[in-house]
Simulated assay, not measured.
Amino acid sequence: MLDQRDAADHCLSMATPIPTSFATEAGQRPEPGRRVVRIGRPPENLARPLILASPHSGRDYDDELSRSTRLPVEFLRRSEDAYVDQLIDFAPEYGAGFVCAEFPRVFVDVNRGPGELDPGMFADRVPDKEIAPSRRAASGLGVIPRIGAEGRTLYRRRLRFAEAKNLLARFYHPYHAALHDEVMRLRDRFGSVILVDMHSMPALSGRGADIVLGDRFGTSCREAVSDTVETLFQDLGFVTVRNNPYAGGFTTEHYGRPMEGVNVIQIEINRGLYMDENRVLLRPDHADFIAKMRRFVSELAGIDWVSRLQP
């Protein structure tokens, strides 16, 4: 997630083609038997140029990673965008694709650049070429986070850089290779594609909003996409704002190329709408909210985006 002050730091040229490095770097795959990315596709005859992604709702806390931290799993879970996958995993029923990270973002945050590392969290020297400094990494919230919820230190000891590289190879690169492949497959088929990057936000950070839309101040997607998404949510009774306090993170920055036919918008949902934040449990009435999300997804998928996104 990116706030307004950070947005200028990470903007990329809109003329730059979508990078393909994740597809080539992902030769190292996760160990057999452990699913890193969950992908859902609709039947070919129903397919729409639409993908919904959930990068932060993974909750597979494997033993090795859990032993490396000083914090219990019930506390680590407060860093999740908990249950966001359950708000959208029905997307293929309506013709939209679905991509979900299965691993916890508290260990690997795929909504960061691969070089957003804090050198201070490592026992050995990190090569300069491996680092892309950012405010997020400096604050402990880089691609390998140093801190979790409430700013509490995650690890029992300083890591070695080789451990970070291993985490990126096991989780980060496979996720982005999968997402890249899904985006390009639909872009090539339809001429354009919309990627909706789904997140949740603490109730207090929403500043009274139910939904915060991030389009990097109009640079990551066509205006028609932002306008349509906002209208659909407002018609469902939600209070929306754009780009404040979240303008979009690495995914919107890296993939958002509306001039190349790839439109990316980030959606932050107020957690208080469907869950108990402290206990990381769904509210008793969460089914009502999921019903509204079904309506949102069905209406978004029902739009003739091929015509609407014509140059």
Rank of each mutant, 00 (worst) to 15 (best):
D3E: 12
R5M: 09
C11W: 13
L12G: 00
S13N: 14
M14I: 14
A15P: 03
F22Q: 12
E25G: 12
E44M: 07
N45K: 14
L46W: 08
R48Q: 15
P49N: 06
L50A: 06
G58K: 02
R59T: 04
S66I: 05
R67G: 05
S68E: 11
R70Y: 01
L71H: 01
V73L: 06
D81F: 06
Y83K: 11
D85H: 12
D85Q: 07
L87K: 11
A91G: 11
P92D: 06
E93D: 13
E93Y: 04
G95S: 09
C100L: 13
F107N: 08
V110N: 01
G113E: 04
D118G: 02
G120Q: 11
D124Q: 05
V126K: 03
P127N: 02
D128Q: 14
K129G: 10
E130R: 11
I131L: 07
I131P: 03
A132H: 06
P133D: 07
A138D: 13
G142R: 08
V143H: 06
I144V: 15
P145K: 05
I147A: 05
E150P: 03
L159A: 08
F161R: 03
A164S: 09
K165S: 02
K165C: 13
A169R: 15
Y175P: 04
H180I: 00
R185V: 13
D188C: 02
I194H: 03
V196T: 09
V196Q: 00
V196G: 02
D197F: 02
M198P: 00
S200T: 11
M201P: 00
A203C: 02
A203V: 05
I211N: 00
G214I: 03
R216S: 07
F217D: 10
G218P: 07
R222F: 01
R222E: 15
S226I: 05
V229C: 12
T231P: 03
L232G: 08
L232N: 10
R242Q: 13
R242V: 05
N244M: 09
T251P: 09
E253H: 07
P258R: 01
V262R: 08
V264L: 04
E268L: 09
N270P: 11
N270G: 11
N270Q: 10
Y274F: 15
M275D: 00
M275E: 06
D276F: 05
D276Q: 10
N278K: 14
L282Q: 10
R283Y: 06
D285Q: 09
H286S: 13
A291N: 14
K292M: 15
M293R: 12
R295S: 14
V297M: 07
V297G: 03
L300P: 01
G302A: 03
G302K: 04
W305Y: 03
V306L: 09
V306T: 12
R308T: 14
P311G: 04
